[in-house]
Amino acid sequence: MQRFLWDSIKQPVRVALLCVAGLVVSLQPAFAEFKVGLVLDRGGKDDKSFNSSAYEGATEAKKKLGIFLKYVEATDDNAYESQLRAFAQRDFDLIIGIGFAQKEAIKKIAAQFPQKHFAIVDAQVDAPNVRSLMFEEHEGAYLIGAIAAMTSKTGKIGFVGGMDIPLIRRFAMGYEAGAKKINPQVTIVANYVGVTSEAWNNPPKGKELAMTQYDGGVDVIFAAAGASGLGVFDAAEERKKFAIGVDANQDWTKPGLILTSMLKRVDEAVRSTIEEAQAAKFTGGVKRFGLANKGIDYSFDQYNASVLTEAVRKRADELKAEIIAGTITVPDYYKKQ
């Protein structure tokens, strides 16, 4: 049958068809897949928070765009540089570093490989081939503070930060401002898990801090502590009080106890960067994600629908609109210094 069809085509047409087929085959390498390398923080792919979010964004891009994706997790602080370099030396087109700890490594490698494209989350590297993905965490924390103050019955709300660094202080400051906006008399108890990168991955300490806060009368805790936040959620379950998640949507981890999550759409930032780079529209410079472009938001889904009341959401959305419009200025720890 096929043989018959082929034979029925006239000779010149056959030659032309073969030529086209040959051309398609020979052009194949030009359409080689776009390769993305992802260097995760020491927290690793499964922290259910920051790194997980980045990994999900990249995986989504892989599914949607058919790119080639390879991720690695750093074993020590000297490994960032050699992993970034390994990606750059191979035929990877876009290399993304997750977390501020890679700032210096990205700066160095990007300068050595000016023809490659790089992106970094949570740090600013000024180079034409590096895109810095920065988030306006204080805006989201402000909404979370307001939601916590509106939901709290005791007038005491808590904050458990991971590592005590300016980034997390920025969360705390926005949180406090948002809560004070709703209830100027609100008491805020803030604790930090630690001062080293271990603090991102210490659920028992997170739980211990949360238990102490709950027992002191706090009834809502915002955990901005990476994997240590999972300990805060355990404490919430034991004391039957509320906790608030961070970075990824964590409402599903303890349905009905996670009041909401402050979404930091690292996934979105990573995905859109990959998409633009693949479409040859990569640009360097700082790209900011805030409430206005939905890079920062709070979560509402079937897992917290029963606890996050409509009145609270309505007020939070009003505040959101006011921040976007510029009528409310959220204090920014970075600018205070």
Binding site: G44, K70, V72, E73, T75, A79, S82, Q83, A86, F87
Partner: peptide
């Protein structure tokens, strides 16, 4: 070994950081 196993993570499908350890 330390340097070589770090590359395993990058070059293989199944050998992750943990398996290198």
């Amino acid at each position: 070994l330390h340097k070589g196993t770090a590359d395993l993570d990058m070059e293989t499908e199944h050998v992750t950081r943990e398996l290198s350890l």
